[in-house]
Design a protein around this nucleic acid. Structure first.
Lengths: 154, 154
DNA sequence: CAATAGGGTTGCATTTTAAAACCAAATTGA
DNA sequence: TCAATTTGGTTTTAAAATGCAACCCTATTG
């Protein structure tokens, strides 16, 4: 049977994964964040099959994570650029990368060294924070249930 | 052809996606964070096929995101519980959920209301921060290239 | 002691994926 | 100028992954 879809799930993580939760989409977004814009460049950097790349780019464009722009005066060259929605995945990508660097460090070392453009200092580890800015672990939080609903929001 | 694997990619995001980047794994982790531990409960809450759930749980255990524990004295009931590595996905999951709530709000409202257990106040939006704690967008950062290597780390 | 729940495995039809071949418009370069 | 190449795709085909239903074995329950 077909892969299950989460479009209409009442869980926003499921809906998010429906847009960027496959093997390639988030990597495409990552490379877009690093400045890649052209079809061929994505293809070469990711080592992805062209038909899959076509499909994923189209889906990301449909979901407004990327925008497809004609470049050159004759309109046969395109650029895929992040929308605000796409750029908003920045914390997700950085958090995932930090997790990967921590728990599955590259065999040849060198984790991501992302730095503040102004100060040149490394960025902090992405964490969930309370209103005062203190980092919180999963044990430090609870889900405020919607008073109008008895269905669990998880 | 087979799905491409990213086990030995030199990109930690790719390696991370190799562990939790399929349609189900991160949802399983999410539900584990909400307290689900039993096979049947995962199955019912997620609506996932049993064979797929078996496979995903085994893979998450292999990758040390979950731990499988026997419960009950006769050892025929099991619980799947998050390891530290698994709990460390908390910022990733929260960031993804916040992104989903922002850009694909549930048709029936109610975004995640995650609160500090101590103060009862909602948590902040997950962001990338500089050393001083200021939120940074993707335009505010750069990647410090490894001086010993000329290969791009993206 | 039969029924049921928990935790799986197996078989099968349907989709997805990857790779390679092919294609057409635009650009390059000799 | 005209052939070669680049860009951005589509098509075809085989191998995998998915979803569902059916089955299995071990506890526990009524």
């Amino acid at each position: 049977m077909a892969r299950k879809r989460f479009d209409d799930s009442n869980c926003s993580v499921a809906r998010a994964l429906n847009e960027v939760g496959d093997w390639w989409s988030l990597l495409i977004v990552l490379h877009a964040m690093y400045g890649t814009r052209r079809f061929v460049d994505f293809q070469q950097q990711l080592g992805i099959a062209k038909n899959i790349l076509c499909d994923r780019l189209a889906r990301l464009v449909d979901n407004e994570v990327l925008r497809k722009e004609e470049v050159g005066e004759h309109g046969s060259r395109f650029e895929y650029r992040l929308t605000e929605k796409g750029r908003d995945l920045f914390p997700v990508v950085v958090a995932l990368r930090q997790w990967g660097d921590k728990w599955n460090p590259a065999p040849d070392g060198q984790p991501l060294d992302l730095r503040d453009r102004d100060t040149g200092e490394p960025v902090q580890t992405v964490t969930v924070r309370n209103a005062q800015g203190q980092p919180l672990s999963i044990r430090d939080v609870f889900v405020a249930e919607d008073l109008n609903s008895s269905t669990k929001s998880a």
